[in-house]
Design a protein around this nucleic acid. Structure first.
Lengths: 334, 334
DNA sequence: TTGTAAGCGTTATCAA
DNA sequence: TTGATAACGCTTACAA
């Protein structure tokens, strides 16, 4: 259990003062070439490694860490976000500290606290809680907050979302154009912003298309595949079943496909899924796609920009979506 | 841009010394209830939040952060690992710092450096590099290192892997039991340890089963789906094509399925994939499955255990795999 | 039960 | 170009 050499030790070995050694190792100007050489030699021969903890403390204010609070790291959407964030942060010499809230507002709060104790320079959050006004004080104290995937209520911060309404409109339009009228919408939990955006737009488009009572085919609660499966099975057991399904997230798509496998003639039902997934291609599933990695990257970019310039105007980034026709969404109504 | 109150400010507001305030906020014993009360009140009313950076520095040694260096956070296998690690660390009041190496040994090295500067208490790594003896000094200096998914060469550290050979044996045995003899193996890059384990076992089992020249159907380089697809297409274009394919990782499985779609009679070819994936169920793909989240959890557990007791014996944890028959692996040879 | 004083390993200030 | 010396905000001996 050897102790690491400190900057002071390096300085002494090089025969210079602490400050000079610090200057060299931080690539600051105004150091004689010979001095620099000596310090560098001493550092490498001693195996010096700067202590970022001490550096951050001395610098005061924030550390060079950025916190990311997400719903569930095991979900491919969130991990794609994390990947994009991490890559962008690295470009700026920042490190990523991740934490999963399990979509639990209380847990989100305590994680926020822990990250703040770590003096993260910025917090990137996919908000689980309904109200984030507790962060207002932190923001006033200089904390950068960026939310991604859905807006945060109660605070006015940089936000990165996808065009949920546009994507929904395109998806429903796609099905309508293929002759469908009885279109079902299978969505996540009603309290989620993305659900609200997508379901509202669904109803609007259906209404505009002259389909009465589209609510009949609106379902919520498909937070996992099993739930979605049940909802879809139910839809097809009822009188007047739909001829097409818009599954409003990747879990819902999986559940929908599982359910349709068991429905007589289920393979004739048109399906469009929100969120692309790796095997959608192989399965021939038409989806509303967007770039989750890019979403994360943009969020990190905003975090960096705001840290550098706290007074800049708050930005809302809306990323585009597009329908990828792969067969399942192009089937005609029976 | 308000400055956060420090412990000293809280102490003053409560009319106690710095140390007493510290005691209260760290839940140390031997503080009068009334004093505690006053300090707590002062802390909340001032909006105090302890500075973990300063605390870690003062405590000396390592921070309460654990670093995880992984190949690619966007890959569902690695994010499952990360998820398991994060959950376990949280139980112990530790935080997770993630970084992606893109499977690049050089990058792995620099990331290691950055995490060490941050004085992480432990490093969990899915080794990309061939040689990790550079870490030997750090380990001697008290750093905990745990490797996961594949062993690290050059250092003797706690390791968590799955039973690659057993899984391969079971998969090949499964196909042999269904009457196959011409079984192809489509694997990742040859330099990867998992490839070596799996391919070697494949050849052994084939040999033991009396199949000569199994090498004919051994392919490597399927690091992504596209590469796998090409390899499989090639296999089936050649004379004496296989009647079954063992795809040695999740990417290879996807590529195999894509390729078989284009092969006449491809839907009659038996397929077993290494690594389970969400839609394997829906697609009816037989796989060799294991629990990646648990793998991460075990790695974190080892990291915590070793940090607490640096002299404990080095552990090698081998997690079991199991074959999940779902149809694709049970097709008879044509 | 409470307090004093000395670090922890940097960076920053200001003078030389 | 260099160097004392004081922060940074906390923990930990050691006293009282």
């Amino acid at each position: 259990m050897i102790r690491r050499p400190t900057l002071a030790v390096v300085a002494e070995a090089a025969g210079v003062s602490l400050k000079t050694a610090s200057r060299v190792l931080n690539r600051e100007p105004n150091v004689a070439a010979a001095t620099r050489e000596r310090v560098l030699d001493a550092a490498t021969s001693l195996g010096f490694r700067r202590n970022a903890v001490a550096a951050d403390l001395a610098r005061g204010g924030f550390s060079r860490l950025v916190g990311f609070i997400t719903g569930d790291l095991a979900n491919e959407f969130y991990s794609a976000l994390a990947s994009g964030i991490e890559r962008e942060l690295r470009e700026h010499g920042l490190q990523l500290l991740t934490a999963s809230s399990d979509e639990d507002p209380e847990r989100e709060g305590s994680l926020t606290g822990e990250l703040l104790e770590r003096r993260v320079g910025a917090l990137i959050v996919t908000p689980a809680g309904a109200d984030h006004s507790a962060l207002r004080g932190e923001i006033a104290a200089g904390l950068t907050v960026v939310v991604v995937d859905r807006p945060a209520a109660g605070i006015d911060v940089d936000t990165v979302v996808i065009d949920n309404r546009g994507g929904t409109r395109a998806a429903v339009g796609h099905l309508l154009a293929h002759g469908h009228r009885r279109i079902a919408f299978v969505g996540d939990e009603p309290h989620l912003w993305t659900y609200q955006e997508r379901s509202t737009e669904f109803l609007d488009v259906m209404h505009d298309a002259g389909v009465p009572d589209a609510e009949r085919w609106l379902r919520s609660g498909a937070h996992d595949a099993a739930a979605a499966r049940g909802l879809v099975a139910e839809l097809f057991a009822a009188p007047e079943p739909p001829t097409a399904v818009l599954a409003a997230n990747n879990r819902a798509t999986v559940g929908t496909l599982q359910a349709l496998r068991d429905v007589p003639g289920g393979d004739g039902v048109a399906v469009v899924g929100f969120d692309d997934f790796e095997l959608a291609d192989l399965l021939g599933i038409t989806v509303v796609a967007y770039d989750a990695v890019e979403m994360g990257r943009r969020a990190a970019e905003l975090a960096v920009a705001r840290s550098a310039e706290p007074d800049r105007a708050v930005e809302l980034v809306v990323l585009p979506t597009r329908v990828l026709p792969r067969g399942s969404g192009e089937r005609p109504p029976r």
